[in-house]
């Protein structure tokens, strides 16, 4: 059951712009950065952040995509399938990697991503950017850049819909109550 709209398209655009600025500010520029999006929506968000950074900083930050299926800790407990290709166009060694995902929940996906990136090389630092932090962490992991902190119930459903990945005309993030069917995250 629909509960509330957390972000509409304009809110999302502003959140992307702000996060892009925060990333550049924190890292004193955009040199040496690489944005790595986690499937399925992370790569699209990473591309938006890179476009925003290019617009005000005039640096083309490399964007990669990462699939963490083979690094998860719940393999065998549920149906785990690869969601897309892992493609990182540059050597991450010595760079600052910013992991990008839509929703931060238990933190287990991020833990898997830390392992996956480590096998690609040794970044100087890794940071995390998410559109929504919905709480309920099961691991000591936190985000460096957050679109919105959203208190949720464990059974609730945060639905992110992006034009690139979800076949919708307009971006939105919504909170749905437990009795709703379908959805993800």
């Amino acid at each position: 059951m629909f509960r509330t709209r957390v972000f509409d398209a304009s809110d999302l655009r502003r959140a992307h712009t702000r996060i892009a600025h925060e990333i550049v500010e924190r890292n004193h520029g955009a040199q040496d950065l690489v944005l790595i999006g986690l499937h399925t929506r992370g790569p699209a968000i990473a591309r938006r952040l890179a476009a925003a950074i290019a617009s005000f900083e005039e640096v083309d930050v490399p964007v990669g995509s990462l699939d963490v299926a083979f690094y998860r800790d719940d393999i065998g407990l549920r149906n785990v399938q690869p969601l897309g290709p892992t493609e990182v166009p540059v050597d991450v060694t010595g760079r600052v990697v910013v992991l990008v995902d839509d929703v931060l929940f238990t933190g287990r996906t991020i833990r898997a991503a830390l392992d996956a990136v480590t096998e690609l090389g040794r970044p100087r630092a890794m940071q995390l950017a998410v559109l929504v932090d919905r709480g309920h962490r099961e691991l000591p992991i936190r985000a460096d850049f957050v679109g919105k902190n959203l208190p949720t119930g464990v059974g609730e459903d945060v639905r992110v819909r992006l034009s690139e990945t979800d076949d919708v005309a307009e971006d939105a993030i919504e909170l749905w109550a437990p009795d709703a069917s379908g959805g993800s995250e």
């Binding site: 690094y71 393999i75 399938q81 892992t86």
Partner: peptide, 20 residues
């Protein structure tokens, strides 16, 4: 389709994942 994902893994510097 899954084999495609594993062919990508094999092309990496560390062609190994902790999946199993």
């Amino acid at each position: 389709d899954q084999s495609d994902a594993f062919l990508d893994v094999l092309a990496r510097d560390i062609p190994k994942v902790p999946a199993l």
